[in-house]
């Protein structure tokens, strides 16, 4: 807007008028690719990987409902262990794929996991940082869905509990140029709620508890172990130093990305 205002003030200069017609191309614009988990984790993973590996300055926002939502609730690789979905009617037996961890392996991809209902500040900051990151960014956003079997007007509460139980830890990963950079920052607190307390308030988990309590207990115990193990791994990750390979003297981190602490 400011560019347009200043160019307009220069009227009737013909050069200014010409520049005014090109105004949108003269300022930095963010490119966002938005998709669901079925695409990002599953059938579109090859394409997503291709984009992340490209090194281009693009941002990817994954609205992770942990199930194929548009097509009617089929299980994806994002579906957590123990949840019931189409193609996983007796509860998914394998754990959720850690897409963020895979993307982090590139070392130059900004990765964040967010949940609006759990921490608004962290959500906004992660989206801003992703946009500002000069290379590829991947933001995984926990998204509630009809297929969770919840009353959608309580979506924010379910998001909060997903984080509180450790089912969906909040983090940001932004490697810098300093070799002592610790790029992984955990933005949520240590799980303070049993996974089952969060999970069994949702029909996708509770229906297995009703239909096959024995299997439900078995899978819920494993799912709790998934949470515990992932948290243990992330805690260690928060202490790992890693920097983006660069020529001596080059600055990678443009604006102090991921260096600010957000209240959890």
């Amino acid at each position: 807007m400011r560019l347009r205002e200043r160019l307009a003030a220069l009227e009737p200069d013909p050069t200014a008028r010409h520049l005014l017609s090109l105004a949108d191309d003269l300022v930095r614009s963010d490119v966002w690719i938005i998709g669901g988990d079925g695409w990002a984790y599953d059938i579109g993973y090859g394409g997503l990987d291709h984009v992340l590996a490209s090194g281009e300055n693009v941002n990817v926002l994954v609205l992770d409902t942990e199930v194929y939502s548009n097509t009617g609730g089929q299980a994806s690789k994002a579906t957590p262990r123990g949840a019931v979905a189409k193609f996983a009617t007796s509860g998914k037996s394998t754990p959720k794929k850690d897409l963020g961890a895979l993307a982090m392996q590139y070392g130059n991809v900004y990765v964040a996991q967010i949940a609006l209902g759990a921490n608004e500040v962290q959500t906004v900051r992660a989206l801003q940082e992703a946009a500002a990151w000069p290379g590829p960014s991947l933001v995984l956003a926990y998204s509630t869905c009809i297929a969770h079997g919840i009353d959608m007007k309580y979506s924010m509460t379910h998001m909060r509990d997903a984080v509180k139980s450790g089912h969906w830890p909040l983090y940001r990963f932004a490697p810098g140029s300093d070799e002592h950079t610790k790029p992984f920052r955990l933005d949520s607190r240590k799980p303070a709620m049993a996974l089952s307390e969060f999970a069994l308030a949702e029909a996708r988990f509770a229906m297995l508890e009703r239909s096959d309590p024995e299997r439900s207990h078995h899978l819920m115990a494993l799912a709790q172990a998934d949470v515990d193990e992932r948290w243990h791994y992330y805690e260690q990750l928060a202490g790992v130093e890693r920097s983006v390979p660069h020529e001596p003297g080059a600055i990678v981190d443009p604006e102090g990305v991921a260096t600010e602490e957000v209240p959890s």
Partner: peptide, 26 residues
């Protein structure tokens, strides 16, 4: 209720939950 949840709300999906006939009832 679960079977009807969101059913026919999207042209690509008629329902969002597996067929409950496969589940062991009370």
């Amino acid at each position: 209720r679960l079977g009807d949840l969101g059913s026919d709300s999207n042209p690509e999906a008629t329902s969002y939950f597996p067929d409950l006939a496969d589940f062991e009832s009370v």
